[in-house]
C-alpha cells in the first residue's frame, strides 16, 4: 500500500532531504518492538549516511500503551523548540516512565525552556497533530508498530531480520 499523505513540511525529517531512500516509520514510544527498531534504524542511518532520509510519524496505541500519546505530544512540544529528534531519541532510550514529571525532566535534560514545554504539553493543536498522524497511518494500512514505508510504499517484509536492510541497500 502507498502512503496516503506524502512526506511534507509538517513532518520531522532527519538526514539528507534529497536522499535516494526515504524511510517513514510509524511508531509508538511505549511499544517494545519500536524500542528495538530504534537501535536498528540508528544503525541504518550510520550505514547509509547521506543516502537515507528518516521520517517518524506517531502511531500511539493508547489503550495498551496509555502513556504513548503523552510521549508523542512531548516530541511535538520539543519540536517547537527545534529538538524533536533529541526528544525522540531520549524517549526510546529511556522508556521506563513517561509520566508528566518525567517528560518535564527529559525536557530539562535536553536544555529546553521548561515553562514553554509544559504549556505546549497541554496544547490541543499538538494533540490533534498526533491524532492526524494516527489517522493518516491507519488510512495508509498501518496495522502494527513499527510499520515502515520505503519511498512511499509500505514494506511488507520483516524489519528485524535484515530483509528491510537489504531492501534499502538495493536502492542505492
Amino acid at each position: 500500500m502507498a502512503l496516503r499523505k506524502p512526506v511534507d513540511a509538517d513532518d520531522h525529517i532527519e538526514g539528507n532531504i534529497h536522499a535516494a531512500i526515504e524511510l517513514v516509520e510509524y511508531g509508538d514510544y511505549q511499544c517494545p518492538h519500536c524500542q528495538k527498531a530504534y537501535y536498528i534504524v540508528k544503525r541504518w542511518q550510520r550505514e547509509f549516511g547521506d543516502n537515507l532520509k528518516l521520517v517518524f510519524r506517531n502511531f500511539p496505541l493508547e489503550n495498551i500503551h496509555p502513556l504513548a500519546k503523552p510521549a508523542a505530544i512531548a516530541t511535538e512540544a520539543a519540536a517547537r523548540q527545534g529538538k524533536f529528534w533529541e526528544m525522540h531519541d531520549h524517549l526510546f532510550e529511556n522508556h521506563d516512565d513517561f509520566s508528566r514529571g518525567k517528560l518535564v525532566q527529559f525536557a530539562e535534560e535536553l536544555g529546553l525552556n521548561v515553562t514553554d514545554f509544559s504549556k505546549d504539553l497541554e496544547d490541543p493543536e499538538l494533540s490533534a497533530k498526533v491524532d492526524a498522524d494516527f489517522y493518516g497511518g491507519m488510512r495508509s494500512g498501518v496495522n502494527a508498530t513499527p510499520t515502515f514505508f520505503v519511498n512511499g510504499e509500505k514494506f511488507e517484509g520483516s524489519w528485524d531480520t535484515g530483509e528491510l536492510r537489504d531492501f534499502l541497500q538495493n536502492l542505492i
Partner: peptide, 16 residues
C-alpha cells in the same frame, strides 16, 4: 502477540 494484534488495533479505531 500484542502490538501487531488486530483486535488491539481496532480498539484504537472505534471512534472512527
Amino acid at each position: 502477540p500484542v502490538c501487531g494484534d488486530q483486535m488491539a488495533l481496532y480498539n484504537e479505531m472505534l471512534k472512527f
